[in-house]
């Protein structure tokens, strides 16, 4: 076989293999989405958003779970985002290449990939056990712990993209580092930080395992943060495992709802990054 022929054959083979791999991956994704949409759509009606989760064998909706999920996510992000952004700022602007920063970065990466059930067990041990019962607060704390490493990572990455020349200009005008960070670095990295937050929200809104041990579930409408609270992931988990067709249908619809929310958040994140930062792209 001539050298040029061999090259062409190798090229064609590599191309074919990667195409096959892509098709397999996308087929799985399409199959999941198709099952979700076809089974979930059947249960979507006004009742889904107005009725509480029903007892076995009767019709109902997911209102309490939707509210609970929203509340847990909002509180979790409100706790986790400031910590994550400030820690990311420390790593990018103050710690940089110091040993302490290196250690923090490593631990953060470990936390980033830690199984979320461990986070649930951790909050169970330090909050639920001493208090004596499951609560929405414990659930929100667990979600915050999951959101923090994501936010730390994206914040640090985004702050590092801010050109050094811009920071130097601010320093040379007589700004202390904190003024430079507030006045120049954050505005320059704003869309990146917002994108990171949206991704953190997307990440925590689908978490089930940490909520099983913390917020648990609630069959009724509850806004009491000290009490267990209903939430979509745990409701889906419980209803999908049940023998009742009404519950199973609600689980499908809930799953569709979460997926669409995360999809919308991801699109919003891309939108923010692409559209709201024309200055960055023109450079």
């Amino acid at each position: 076989m001539s050298r040029s022929l061999r090259r062409k054959v190798t090229n064609a083979l590599a191309l074919a293999l990667s195409a096959v791999a892509t098709v397999i991956g996308l087929t799985c994704l399409a199959a999941i989405l198709w099952t979700l949409v076809s089974d979930g759509l059947a249960g979507v009606s006004g009742h889904l958003f107005t009725d509480m989760t029903p007892p076995p064998g009767s019709a109902g909706g997911l209102l309490n779970a939707i509210y609970g999920s929203a509340a847990l996510t909002v509180i979790g992000i409100l706790i986790g985002a400031p910590i994550g952004i400030l820690a990311g700022t420390y790593l990018a602007e103050y710690g940089r290449e110091t040993r302490l920063a290196g250690v923090i970065r490593f631990i953060n990466d470990v936390l980033l990939s830690a199984p979320s059930i461990i986070v649930g067990l951790f909050i169970y041990q330090v909050v639920v056990v001493p208090v004596g019962h499951f609560s929405a607060v414990a659930g929100a704390l667990a979600l915050a712990v999951i959101a923090i490493p994501v936010t730390v990572r994206t914040t640090e990455d985004m702050l590092r993209l801010v050109p050094q020349g811009m920071k130097d200009a601010s320093t040379a005008l007589g700004a202390y580092p904190w003024r430079t960070i507030l006045g120049v670095v954050y505005p320059a990295a704003r869309s990146g930080i917002v994108t990171g937050l949206l991704l953190a929200i997307a990440r925590v809104s689908g978490e089930t395992a940490p909520l099983l041990f913390t917020a648990l579930n609630n069959q009724f409408w509850s806004t009491d943060l000290a009490a267990p609270i209903a939430n979509l992931p745990v409701v889906i988990y419980q209803f999908a495992m049940s023998p009742y067709p009404e519950w199973q249908q609600l689980a499908w619809s809930g799953a569709l709802l979460i997926t669409l929310t995360i999809l919308l958040l991801s699109i919003a994140a891309r939108f923010v990054l692409a559209v709201l930062q024309p200055a960055k792209r023109s450079r």
């Binding site: 020349g165 811009m166 200009a169 005008l173 007589g174 320059a188």
Partner: peptide, 28 residues
């Protein structure tokens, strides 16, 4: 800070802040 207010610096690469023209000048 006082020193840098008395001794200004212009850099090799133009490095305006990602702000309006007005805010760039008003920053200092």
């Amino acid at each position: 800070v006082q020193l840098r207010a008395r001794v200004g610096m212009v850099f090799q690469k133009p490095n305006p802040f990602p702000k309006s023209i007005y805010e760039n000048v008003a920053y200092g």
